[in-house]
Amino acid sequence: MSLFKRAVFSEITSHAGIVFSTLLVVWLSVLIVRLLGDAAEGDIGANVVLGLAAFSSITALPVILSASLFVAVLTTITRSYRESEMSVWFASGLSLSQWLWPVMRFALPVAAIVAVLTLSASPWAYGQIAEYRQRFEQRSDLSKVSAGQFIETDEGRRIFFAESPTRPGDELGRVMARIIEPDWLSVVTAESAAIRTEANGDRFLVLGPGHRYDLKPGSPEVRMLDFDRYGVRIESRSDPGALEAKRQKALQQIKARPTLDLIAQADAESLSQLMWRLALPLAVLNLAFIAVPLGAVNPRLGRSGDLLIAGLLALLYMNLINLSRGWIANGTLSFGIGLWLVHAAFLALGLGLMWRRVRMPRSKKRKARPA
């Protein structure tokens, strides 16, 4: 490999690593904050936050890799122009078109990785996310009570809060529960709580000692009850057969379906998802190609305008792919046309930009002046 190709490949690799790390850290930060918020609201368990973050990151890697490659190629070529390094390469007999080989040499492995992620890894990750959430949904309301959290269940009709245990052997400390029934509003407080499983398999949340206050809204009637032990049977929200059917339905979500199942199904929704999975690897190559002429800038002009245009163009590309997916799902566009239309349009745009950058301006003929 020549000195030129080694230098270009090394710089693109360095820039891509920096951009990829930055985007991944930003993605994980936003994702973990959102997942922690869901855990605080009781939508997911706190013990599955890291697992969901890992699987969600796998699903986001194709887009992150595509953006990282585009920005890396763009910044490498832009830097060469602004620091007059490109003038040295041009003086050595090279042209802008000769940047395509080292750029594509880096883009082809990235496109292969994106293809593996979109066709295999991402559907598996979506399936794991659905299964994690389904397992949490299968738990009964009371079994979700954990120390230091308000848990709202049954569409807000039951709210629980438990403190950390203060005595050895207790699973939970002080517990407060508010229960809304058709005729009564009940408030239950207890010094401790524990989950017990009987010999027949029935599970109970055992409170005690504590108090229960029953109020009838719109009436002065009040009931007060002191108890040493108060057991609440933990019931599942539906029978095991229904839960299994719900789990299978969640796993059959379109994003979690294996690629071979999408090909076998061949309905509009399956074809739209298949188009999206095939479009991302092609978009990687197209974005890398378009970044070469877009990076050719005038060193005397400001840099923000060119980078803004390039970013908007890449954003338009991804949005058009997503729009084509919606058109295929609605039956407005056929699968064959939807798969290639956007890529062909942007490939033509890239070829036009490249031709405009590399063509030599014709010298104007001077008219002979009369003697």
Rank of each mutant, 00 (worst) to 15 (best):
L349F: 09
L260E: 11
F204M: 04
S186N: 11
V103K: 02
V175H: 02
T189R: 11
P182W: 04
S146G: 11
G93F: 05
S87P: 04
M318A: 07
A194H: 06
P102D: 04
V206D: 01
T332P: 01
G218P: 01
A130D: 09
E137T: 15
D183L: 08
R237M: 08
R6W: 10
L52S: 03
L315I: 00
Q98I: 01
K364A: 09
T75I: 10
L282I: 13
A39R: 01
R139K: 11
R79H: 12
F289D: 02
S87K: 12
I180L: 11
A194T: 08
S2T: 15
G127F: 02
V116P: 06
G241K: 09
D306M: 13
T118F: 00
S363V: 10
F289A: 09
A264N: 09
I337R: 00
L65C: 07
I290F: 07
L28D: 08
Y126R: 07
G42R: 02
V26L: 15
R174Q: 08
F4L: 14
P123D: 02
Q253A: 14
R357W: 03
D226H: 12
G127I: 00
A16M: 15
L74W: 05
A121V: 11
E244G: 10
N330P: 00
S122K: 05
R178F: 13
A371W: 12
L205P: 03
L308R: 14
D183P: 05
L52C: 04
G336F: 14
R277T: 01
I263T: 02
R356M: 10
I64Y: 07
S324Q: 11
L308T: 11
S304P: 00
F9H: 14
L142E: 04
S238H: 09
E155A: 13
T197F: 00
L50I: 12
L31A: 11
T118C: 02
G336S: 15
S219L: 06
S29L: 15
Y230G: 02
S120A: 10
L142M: 06
T189I: 01
L294C: 04
G295Y: 01
F4I: 10
A348K: 00
S236T: 10
I180S: 14
D214S: 09
P370D: 06
A54Q: 11
E198D: 12
